[in-house]
Measured scan of single mutants.
Amino acid sequence: TGIVNVSSSLNVRSSASTSSKVIGSLSGNTKVTIVGEEGAFYKIEYKGSHGYVAKEYI
């Protein structure tokens, strides 16, 4: 489990790349469930599926 550490919002992406499609966003202080790691990204549970967020903001 981690907490989103941004002042505005954090993009949730379809894969572990900054060039991948943005599938949603999370507000600061949102609790997320981390299910894996891939490079500079965490794989998280997101809306019944999975998404990826940059580690530096969790």
Rank of each mutant, 00 (worst) to 15 (best):
S19P: 06
K31T: 13
E38P: 01
S20T: 04
Y57R: 06
Y52Q: 00
T30Q: 12
N11G: 09
I44R: 00
A16H: 05
F41I: 01
A16W: 05
L10F: 05
S7A: 13
S14M: 15
S15M: 12
G39N: 08
H50A: 07
N5F: 06
G39H: 06
S25L: 14
S9L: 11
G51D: 00
V6P: 08
T30I: 08
Y42V: 04
S8K: 13
K43R: 11
E37F: 07
S49G: 15
H50E: 07
L10E: 03
Y57S: 10
S27C: 12
S49E: 10
T33M: 10
G48P: 05
S49L: 10
A16S: 07
I58N: 02
T30E: 13
S25K: 14
S20W: 05
A40Q: 12
G24I: 03
S15W: 08
L26M: 06
I34S: 01
V4Y: 03
G36C: 07
G51Y: 04
V12S: 00
G2F: 06
K47W: 07
A40Y: 09
V32A: 02
N29A: 10
V6G: 11
R13H: 15
I23N: 01
Y52C: 02
K31A: 10
A40F: 09
G48D: 09
Y46I: 04
V6H: 12
I23F: 03
S15F: 09
I3M: 10
S17I: 06
A40D: 15
A16L: 04
S25Y: 15
A54M: 14
E38S: 09
Y57P: 03
Y52L: 01
L26C: 04
N29D: 09
G48K: 07
V6R: 08
F41D: 03
V12C: 02
T30F: 07
V12T: 01
S15L: 09
V6A: 11
I23T: 03
T18I: 14
G28R: 14
A16N: 04
S25A: 12
Y52W: 12
K47F: 11
V22L: 08
G24Y: 04
K43L: 10
Y46D: 01
N29I: 06
A54K: 10
V53N: 00
Y57W: 10
H50V: 15
K43Y: 07
N5R: 11
E56V: 10
T33G: 04
T1W: 12
V53H: 00
I44C: 01
T18H: 15
T30C: 09
K47G: 11
G28H: 14
V22A: 06
T1M: 14
V53E: 00
E37G: 05
E45A: 10
K47Q: 13
V32N: 01
T18A: 14
T33K: 12
N29F: 15
N11V: 15
S49A: 14
S8A: 11
G2Y: 05
V4R: 04
S17W: 05
S8H: 15
K31F: 13
S19M: 14
S20H: 05
S15H: 14
Y46V: 03
K47A: 11
K43N: 03
K43F: 05
Y42C: 03
V32T: 02
S20R: 03
V12E: 00
G51P: 00
S15C: 10
V4M: 05
V4C: 06
S8L: 10
V12M: 03
S14H: 12
V35Y: 07
H50S: 07
A16T: 07
A40L: 12
I44V: 06
E38V: 10
T30V: 10
E37I: 10
F41V: 02
T30S: 12
Y46E: 01
S9A: 12
E45V: 15
T18V: 13
G36K: 07
G39Y: 05
G51F: 03
A54N: 09
G51E: 01
T30A: 12
I3E: 06
N11C: 14
Y57C: 11
A16D: 03
K31R: 11
L10R: 04
G36Y: 04
Y42A: 02
T18E: 14
S14R: 13
A40C: 12
V35K: 05
S8P: 11
I44W: 01
I34V: 06
E38K: 07
I23W: 03
S17G: 08
T1E: 13
L10K: 03
V53Q: 00
K55S: 05
Y42N: 01
S20I: 02
I44S: 00
G51M: 02
S17C: 08
V12G: 00
S8G: 15
A54S: 11
A54P: 14
A40G: 11
N29Q: 12
K55P: 00
T33Q: 10
N5W: 06
G28D: 08
G48A: 07
G2D: 04
Y52V: 01
V22S: 07
G24L: 04
E45M: 12
G36R: 04
A40N: 13
A40P: 09
R13K: 07
N11E: 15
G24D: 03
I34R: 01
G51Q: 02
V35R: 05
A54W: 10
A54Q: 14
K47C: 12
E45P: 05
T33A: 08
Y46M: 03
V53Y: 00
G36T: 05
I23R: 03
S14I: 14
Y52I: 01
T18L: 15
E37K: 06
E37V: 11
Y52M: 01
K21H: 11
I58M: 04
Y57N: 08
R13G: 04
I23V: 07
K55I: 06
G48W: 06
V32R: 01
S7F: 07
I34Y: 02
A40T: 09
K43S: 03
T33I: 15
S17P: 01
K31P: 10
V53F: 01
S17R: 07
T18W: 14
S15Q: 13
I34C: 03
T30P: 03
E56Q: 13
I58A: 02
S49P: 01
E56I: 14
R13F: 15
S27V: 14
K21Q: 13
I44H: 00
K43E: 06
H50W: 15
N5G: 06
V32I: 09
F41M: 04
S17T: 09
S25R: 13
G36S: 08
V35W: 07
